[in-house]
Structure formats: C-alpha cells, structure tokens
Computed example of a mutant assay.
Amino acid sequence: MPRDSEATRARILEAAITEFSAVGFSGARIERISERSGANKRMIYVYYTDKEGLFTATLNEVITKLVSAVTPDHNDLPGYAGSMFDYLIEHPEAVRIAAWRQLERPTTGPQTTDIYAQKVAAIRAPDLSETAKAIPPTDLLILVQGMAGAWLHTPAELLTHDGSDPQSPQRLASHRAALVEAVRRIVAG
C-alpha cells in the first residue's frame, strides 16, 4: 500500500496543533506528536525539518485561518464581534496557539499584515458614528477583537462567579449577546 504523504503531513500537523496549543513550543515534545499522529518520528523531520519548522507550520495554519475566518463589515462591527466570538469558541486552539506565539516566538509565523490592513480598511468607512470615528481604526479593531476573545482569556473563577456553567450554550449565548451589545454601543456613539 503506497504512503499518502499529504495525509501523513495533515495528521502530523493536527497532532502538532493539539500539542503546541496545550503546552507551547518549549513544552511540546516531538515524541508525543509522533505518537498522537501515528507517524514515524523521522517523518516529522522529513516534512518539517525540526521542531521550530513544525511550530512555524502550525502557526501558519492556525493563525492564517484565525485572521481570515471572519471579515469585519463597517456596517456591522457588532456582528463581526459576535462572529469572531463564535469562531474562537469553536476553535479554542487558535487562542491558545496565538498566546503561545506571543509568549515564546512573537516574530514567528505567517505574514498577516495584508489581512490586517484589509480589516483596518474595512473599519475606515465614512458612515461610522462620530464616536467610532474618534477611535483610530487600528485601535477599534484591536478593541473589538480583544472583546471577542476576552471570554477565553478570563479566569475560571470569574467565569463561574454567577454560578452558571461557563461552557453551557445558554451562558455562551448570553455572553455573546452582551459582547454584541457592547460593541454596538461603542460604534453607535
């Protein structure tokens, strides 16, 4: 039976995403990635050269998907915040990998400058409220994205403070609604 190199690469990358999102670059072990992927450790080195190459490939995969997943619409920044929240809840590994990148390898990973330039340009629309126009577009995007990801950065003690299960569909929906309303108020002035 011939080897399927693309399937092997995909299994390795998926295992690497799991490993790096859990323990970061420093804590990750090629042996665990090999075991999880069912791929020979040697194949990891053949496809990705070394641990650094595998981490870079992981960042490229996860971060490119993250920044490309949801596009802001200057007519609906609250909707953008809600959609970004949905994406992050469905892909918590994206938040963890992005955090590990900032902590351990801030200059490693994909070039997303063009993607962010498009997002900022989408926010520079003339029909935004005066309040929203008073915030520089880059800062407005940072604030909206930060608010969208805040749930996943908040300590469990605060998330459970009201006695609810922070992962329940009802609680997530309630927080999403609060997020969308907060962004609506920021941009509505």
Rank of each mutant, 00 (worst) to 15 (best):
A10L: 06
L13E: 09
L13S: 05
E14A: 06
E19Y: 05
F20R: 02
A22S: 13
A22H: 15
V23D: 05
V23C: 05
G27E: 09
A28D: 02
R29M: 11
R29S: 13
R29K: 15
R32K: 02
S34A: 12
R36W: 03
A39R: 01
N40I: 04
K41L: 01
R42Q: 07
Y45D: 01
Y45L: 05
Y47L: 05
Y48L: 07
D50T: 10
T56S: 08
T56H: 03
T56F: 00
A57L: 15
T58F: 13
T58L: 13
E61R: 15
V62H: 13
V62D: 12
K65S: 04
L66H: 10
V67Q: 08
V67F: 09
A69C: 10
P72E: 10
D76S: 15
L77E: 12
Y80T: 02
A81G: 15
A81S: 14
G82S: 11
G82M: 06
S83V: 03
F85A: 04
D86Y: 01
D86S: 07
Y87Q: 02
Y87S: 01
L88D: 01
L88I: 04
L88V: 06
I89D: 04
P92C: 08
E93S: 14
R96K: 15
I97N: 11
A98R: 15
A98V: 11
A98S: 15
A98E: 15
A99R: 14
A99K: 14
W100Y: 10
W100K: 05
L103M: 14
L103T: 11
T107P: 00
T107M: 07
T107D: 10
T107E: 13
G109M: 04
G109A: 10
Q111C: 00
D114P: 00
D114H: 08
D114W: 05
